[in-house]
Amino acid sequence: MNFAITKEPINVQEVIDKVVDRDAGAINVFIGTVRETTRGRKTLYLIYEAYESMAVKKLEQIGREIRERWPGAKVAITHRIGRLDITDIAVVIAVSTPHRPEAYEASRYAIERIKEMVPIWKKEHWEDGTEWIGDQLEQVPYPSGKPEVKDSDE
C-alpha cells in the first residue's frame, strides 16, 4: 500500500518508512500543506474530494513512471481528503533513490503529475464565498479529452 488516499491526518514518518532501502543514498520527502492566502484572498479551510479508486490507480501509475525513469527508485504517496485546515498536510511524497539528484527530480515529477491527472479536487472556502478549484493554473481545457501529457499506461 505505497499509494493511498486517506481521510485521516497523514503520519509523515509512516510514508517515509515505506521507501527505506539499503541501496538508497537519499530519501526526499515532499509535504504539501494548506496555505492561508492565495492571490490576496484568505482561505478559511479546504475540502478535498477524490474519485478514490481511480486516484489510487493513478498514484500507482506515477510510481511506475518514476521507477522507469529513475531505476532503483522507491516511491510512496499519501493524499488526504475531507476537511483540511490551514497548515494541515494534504499530501506526502517520499522517494528514495541510490543517489541524491534523482530523489529531488523524481519527487518534483510526482507532485507535478498529481496536479495534472490524479482525480482529486479541492474546494476553497474563503471568508466571502466558496469555489471548486479547476486546476492550479485556473483553467486548462483538455481538448483531446485527457491531459495532454505522457501517459505511459495508455
Binding site: 494534504a90 498529481i114 471548486w132 486546476d135
Partner: peptide, 10 residues
C-alpha cells in the same frame, strides 16, 4: 463512467 473536472490535488 466518470466525469473528471480539471483536477486540483496536491
Amino acid at each position: 463512467i466518470a466525469f473528471i473536472p480539471p483536477v486540483s490535488g496536491g
